[in-house]
Amino acid sequence: MVKKIMLPLTDEAIKELKAGDDVLLSGVVYVARDAAHKRMIEALESGEPLPFDIRGQTIYYMGPSPARRGQVIGSAGPTTSGRMDSYSPRLLAEGLKGMIGKGMRSRGVKDAIKQYKAVYFAVVGGAGALASRNISKSEVIAYEELGAEAVRRLEVADFPVRVINDIYGGDLYQEGKARYRVDQE
C-alpha cells in the first residue's frame, strides 16, 4: 500500500511511517549534498543563519546533471547518504525532519532520528532519469558557486521513496537482508 504524504512532514505523519513503507512525497524538498552540508555546519558553528529555515523540512542528498533547454532538471537520483552522517545529527537537532538519499546511515544518525522524531527515506539509486519526472520545479537558492552541489529548492509531486529508518528503530536494510540471508559455513 502506497502512502501519500504532503510536505512538510508533520509529527503525526512521521509516527505513521515504518521501515519498508512505500511513500509518495509531494511538496517542497531542499537539495544539499557534501559541500553544502559542510558549509551549513560551518554557518551554524559561526552563528550564521542557514540558507533556508530548516525546521520541519526535508533534505534530498542529490547533485543533478544539467538540465537541457525546456527541462526542469537533468538526471536527479540520490547520492550515498553515509557521507552526510557526521553532519546530519546537528541538522536534526535544528529541526530537520526528513532525509532522502540512498545507503546505510550511522548509529549516530539512527539515534538522532529517534530522538528528534525524523525519518530517512531512500530513492532507487542510478535511476535519475526516472526520478526527474516527478520534479516540477527546481531553483538554486544558495551556494551557487558549488555548481552541482549548490542548495536547491525543489517542488516534487508523487515523488517515490521508501522508508529506511523510522522513529521506532526500524531499518529496512537490516530487516531486508535478514529476511533473504542464507547462512554460510
Partner: peptide
C-alpha cells in the same frame, strides 16, 4: 537522452 544516473 537524459543521463541514466546524475553521477556521470
Amino acid at each position: 537522452q537524459i543521463p541514466l544516473c546524475q553521477d556521470t
